[in-house]
Computed example of a mutant assay.
Amino acid sequence: MRGKGTAHEHGRVIVVTGATGGVGRATARAFAARGDRVALLARGREGLAAAADEVQRAGGEALVVGVDVCDAKAVDAAAQQVVDTFGHIDVWVNNAFTGVFAPVTEVAPDEFRRVTEVTYLGYVFGSRAALRHMRPRDRGTIVQVGSALAYRGIPLQSAYCGAKHAIQGFNESLRCELLHARSGVRTTMVQLPGLNTPQFDWVLNRMAGRARPVAPVYQPEVAARAIVHAASHARRREYWVGGSTVATLIANAVVPGLLDRYLARTNFDAQQDEGTPGGPVNLWAPADGPHGHDFGAHGHFDDEAVADSPQQWLSRNRGRLGAALTVGAGILAARRLAGLVRR
C-alpha cells in the first residue's frame, strides 16, 4: 500500500517497527509531516491500515509491511521490500516491543522468551537488516527506542526491563564497531519516560489493578519529536527524554541502593490504577487482530499526560547551561529520593 504524496522526490526513507500504536504510530506521523516516505512494520492489519492513512494525510508516503520482528528472515524480507519499493533506507527506527506486568515467579518461561524475542531480538534483527542495506551506501541511521528502564529495572516488569538492558548493551557494541570501521552509518538510542500509550491496555497483566505508566506521564508525541531529532543528529550516542528519565538515571548512578528501596516501596502501587485487568493481549498475536479495533497513538491517560518537556528542549539545544541544569535537576532529585527513603 503506497500513498500518492510528493514525498517520493524529496523525503527520506524511514522504517518504523511497531508502527501501529503508541510511540511508533506518533513517530510515523512525525516523519510523514516532514515529507518522508515511511515504511510501517507491524503485525496488526487494522492498525497498519490506519497508520498508513495518517502518514498519507500528514504529507508522507506509506508502505505497509506485515511482519513479526522476532522472525529474522521475515525482517530481512521486509527490509528488502522497502528497498525494492523506495530504493534505499535512510533511517531505521527499532520500536516494537511487548511485555508482562507480573512478579518474576508469575511470568512463565515461554513468556520471558517471547518478550525477549520481540523486545530485544527484534531490535537485533532490525539493526542487522538495516545494516545490510546501509553499509554498502556508507550512510544511514539506526535509532533504538529505549527507556529509563534500559538502565534501571523496576518491579513487576522484569522481562521488559531485562530486554531493554540487553538492547543498551547491544547498541553500545554496535556503535563501537561502526566507529572502529569509520563507517558513515550511525546508531543512537532514545531513553523514554512513562508515556500515554495503548500498551497498558494490551500488555499481559497479572497485577491486581489495571496497568498504568509511572507518573509523570508524557504524550507519545514528546517521544516522537525526540526520535525524529535523534535520526538527524545521530552522532550523539544517546538522548534522555523527560525530567523523570534524567532524575531516574542519575539517581541510579549516584544512589542505586536507595533507589532499590524507593522503588520497592512505591512502584507496586505506582504501576496500577483501580479497575480489573482485561482486554486483548498482544504477547502472542496483534491486539487489533480478532477485534477489528485500531488503538491509535494515545492511551486513556490524556487527562494527566503533558504534551511537552522542557528537559527535552534543553537536551536538543544543550550547551553548558543546558547540561548544567539537566545534571543539577538529577542531583536534586537524587537527594530528594534519599530523604524519602530515610523517612
Rank of each mutant, 00 (worst) to 15 (best):
R225C: 09
Q157E: 13
C161Y: 02
A129I: 01
A285P: 00
A287Y: 06
D302F: 02
N205R: 06
I89K: 15
V65N: 03
C161I: 04
G140Q: 01
A285E: 12
D269F: 07
S158C: 13
R206F: 10
G99V: 07
G278S: 08
G22T: 04
Q219C: 14
V100N: 03
H293N: 01
G153E: 08
A163P: 01
V255K: 04
R29K: 13
I167P: 00
P290T: 12
R132W: 02
V55T: 06
V185F: 05
V75G: 04
P193I: 13
V281M: 00
Y120D: 09
A163L: 05
E117I: 03
G47C: 06
Q272I: 01
Q157Y: 03
S309K: 06
A338G: 10
A211W: 06
A28F: 09
N282F: 03
Q271M: 13
P286K: 09
A150R: 03
A148W: 11
V82D: 08
F112R: 02
S147V: 10
A297W: 07
G184Y: 05
A49Q: 14
R152L: 11
L332P: 11
R45C: 02
P216W: 14
P109N: 06
A130G: 13
A102D: 06
Q271H: 00
R261K: 13
V16Q: 03
T17P: 05
T98M: 01
G60Q: 11
R265T: 11
V306G: 12
I331C: 12
L249T: 15
V65W: 01
V104K: 00
G153H: 10
G296M: 07
G126A: 05
A50W: 04
C70H: 15
S315L: 01
P109R: 00
V190Y: 07
N282I: 00
V75Q: 05
V91F: 05
D84L: 09
A324C: 12
V65G: 02
V100A: 07
A78T: 08
Q144D: 08
R113L: 13
V341C: 05
Q199S: 15
R182I: 00
A62D: 02
A166Y: 03
G59R: 09
A226E: 04
N252F: 10
D288A: 02
S309R: 03
T6Q: 12
A305H: 03
D269H: 11
E221P: 02
A324I: 04
V118A: 06
V222A: 14
V281A: 01
G162H: 07
M207G: 12
S127G: 14
W240V: 06
R152T: 15
G140Y: 01
R45I: 11
L321G: 13
A297G: 08
A224M: 10
P103D: 13
E111M: 06
H300F: 09
G209M: 11
A32H: 04
D260V: 10
A32E: 01
G66P: 14
V341S: 02
A251K: 03
F301W: 12
A19F: 07
L121F: 15
V281C: 11
V254N: 03
W313K: 03
V93D: 09
K4I: 13
A234D: 04
R335M: 14
A96I: 02
P256N: 10
C161P: 00
T326I: 15
E172I: 11
L263M: 14
L131R: 07
Y123I: 04
S173T: 15
E304P: 00
G292L: 04
N95E: 00
A62T: 05
